[in-house]
Amino acid sequence: MTRAIIKSESVSKTYRSKDITVNALVDVSIEVEEGEMIAVMGPSGSGKTTLLNCLSGLDSIDSGNVSINGQSLSELSDDALSGYRAKNMGFVFQVYNLLPVLTAVENVELPLILAGSSQRDATKSAEEKLEMVGLGDRLSHLPSELSGGQQQRVAIARALANDPAIVWADEPTGNLDSSNASEIMQLLKRLNKESQQTFVLVTHSEEIGMLTDRIMRMSDGVIVDKGTG
């Protein structure tokens, strides 16, 4: 049996504002195995994105524990966490969030350089990654010169730049039309197969969910269905 790469134990997270408290995550305990591609689904406000943020260490948790590869995230300092993200995680967001001032290849290089690669190596593997997502001919375009689908591909290439163990994707196809969306999903699926990386997707689209190994369902901050592989 493959081992659990992501593990959360009784994670809770509450948002407080002036007079309202929102229990975004309540006692969430899940495991994701290495190489698995799972989808987190649920209605708006059910805590999907919060879960992703907490699992990936982007956001802090109030109680419980999250460990990645056996390393508890709460024990890491901010800097260490940043370093950990740079080496072991990739992120894809709904809005592609490329840096507008950098070209496609430079956007993809960025995590590599942050992780300490030399410029030459970084460029080389960034080009490979862009090739892989089918943008070999758009290397030096600025984001503003790319279509939405193309931008999302760059974002995916960036997420994969370090060959991360885990790729987090928050509504990766949310801003795309259906043909582009299915292309992106096919791409993710292919990458997951080829590289044995773990993919965690947040989506509200059943179609997308169907393409993953397992669907986890949430409602009001609680996992209502852990799904089966």
């Binding site: 901010d78 995680m89 967001f93 969030n97 995590p111 997420a159």
Partner: peptide
């Protein structure tokens, strides 16, 4: 803000 958030998400340290 968004750009900075992304930079941080992909592993940039605060001091960067």
């Amino acid at each position: 803000t968004t750009e900075m958030g992304i930079l941080r998400a992909i592993g940039t340290k605060r001091r960067h």
